[in-house]
Design a protein around this nucleic acid. Sequence first.
DNA 1: CGGTTCCTTGACCAGACGGTCAAGGGTGCC
DNA 2: GGCACCCTTGACCGTCTGGTCAAGGAACCG
Lengths: 204, 204
Amino acid sequence: MNRRLTQRGRERRRQLVEYAARRFAENGYHPTSVAEIVAGLGVGKGVFYWYFSSKEELFGEILREAQQELRRCQEQAIADEPDPLRRIELGIRTSMRWLGDHRHLFTLFQFAVTEDRFRGMLRRGEDVAVADAVRHIKEGIGAGRIRDTDPMVLTHAMLGVTNHLARVMIFERGDAPDDVADAAVAFCLDGLCGPPEKVPAAYR
Amino acid sequence: MNRRLTQRGRERRRQLVEYAARRFAENGYHPTSVAEIVAGLGVGKGVFYWYFSSKEELFGEILREAQQELRRCQEQAIADEPDPLRRIELGIRTSMRWLGDHRHLFTLFQFAVTEDRFRGMLRRGEDVAVADAVRHIKEGIGAGRIRDTDPMVLTHAMLGVTNHLARVMIFERGDAPDDVADAAVAFCLDGLCGPPEKVPAAYR
DNA sequence: CGGTTCCTTGACCAGACGGTCAAGGGTGCC
DNA sequence: GGCACCCTTGACCGTCTGGTCAAGGAACCG
């Protein structure tokens, strides 16, 4: 659905996206009905179908806008950092903070992966972010500071650490995003065994 | 629902669990109706409600049995390995292979996390597995072979790596589980920067 | 003022959903 | 045979779903 919207219209649309995202995350996408969304906003059902052609389209828009915003944050944070390892670190820290501030959107990402028709929507956005991280990793490998392994694999390993730690430590345990980011960065850089200088002589 | 079942009954129940799990994973939990499940098995609707009191209960059973089986595999693989780091490695390898063999169940785990009433069902099982890994990590820390960090955090970091790599590299890219396991183990042990002996002198 | 475009209403629809149940078949035991 | 128990059938129920649409209000423009 692509309508020409006035100021007022854009505001309504924003309301719908925001409220629906919250309800979807709290209650699940399928169990949340269009009727419930419009009732929660105190408007008639026609409003919904004026701005979106279907519930599915709305969900797609939520995903798209969320990914866009996360990506904008990351680009801004990394912008003038010359060191590739440090760019990676900043990426992790930014993600962690963003996830802490938008946990409901993270839940929606997780759900989207579990149904075919939504997985595709995520993929496009994820691929862009991954390609970006891969560039930094390649640079790190070129400089001999990252071991020479498939950069895609390394990227996804870091993504896995970040997402899972965000969910468990921030959402469920209530830890501070910055602390969790510290742990994630340390793990991604040096794994279980810790930075080289801390490895006992016997294992060097 | 707890019934006394004959041999024949147990077989029917197994059919229902298996077929439903596959449909839920392919099509989504909510979009898959009870009617569709029984039709796919060529039986009447009453059969479903003879074995399960609701669709939700069936889903819970699927989760419970899947977790139980994964855990059994891991315990068996680790049983007589004395070295804690190697136990961790074996745990990762076993998970990866199991996930490769049961990708549909992994999708269901992922979905379960996104809805409150199912998250609880997962938690109990996950907590047990995590507590187990934490024990091995503590042992590694005691031996000075793992850096002294919150073992829970390290465990979840590894879980994140394993799950995410399984999804992306095995399910989406079609890589061989054993290769992905190699990468996961390497990353978990030494992170991006690689084993100490490969770190260039300048950074030791 | 009239006209146009943007927005909103809510009754309405066909179909699907999860779940129930009276009835009956199959099997095995006494 | 007769009885009991396990299992199966499928029509049926009330409720809710995503989505439609004719009608009308509000804002702005000439």
